[in-house]
């Protein structure tokens, strides 16, 4: 199991959060979900590491 970085890595975390949330503005539930799916796939490819991806999925699932 890869170590999943959970400490903040952004210089401006508020801006990162706002960027994601703002992208959903004006979207319906379905559009919002479709947007997230595209974003997750793009980010997953940027990570490009199946072990880290699985660790992230596990971390999100156990909440």
């Amino acid at each position: 199991m890869s170590a999943l970085p959970t400490e903040n890595r952004f210089a401006d975390p508020d801006a990162a959060y706002a960027a994601i949330v703002d992208a959903h503005e004006g979207l319906s539930e379905a559009e919002s979900a479709a947007f997230d799916a595209r974003l997750v796939l793009i980010l997953a490819n940027v990570i490009g590491d199946l072990a880290i991806l699985r660790a992230a999925i596990e971390a999100a699932r156990k909440r």
């Binding site: 479709a34 799916a37 595209r38 796939l41």
Partner: peptide, 20 residues
């Protein structure tokens, strides 16, 4: 279904999505 739609959408111009 949603993720498949996302892959089909991204595959237009993103090579990584074509591989998925």
């Amino acid at each position: 279904k949603r993720y498949r739609e996302a892959v089909l959408n991204l595959a237009v111009d993103m090579p990584f999505a074509r591989r998925m």
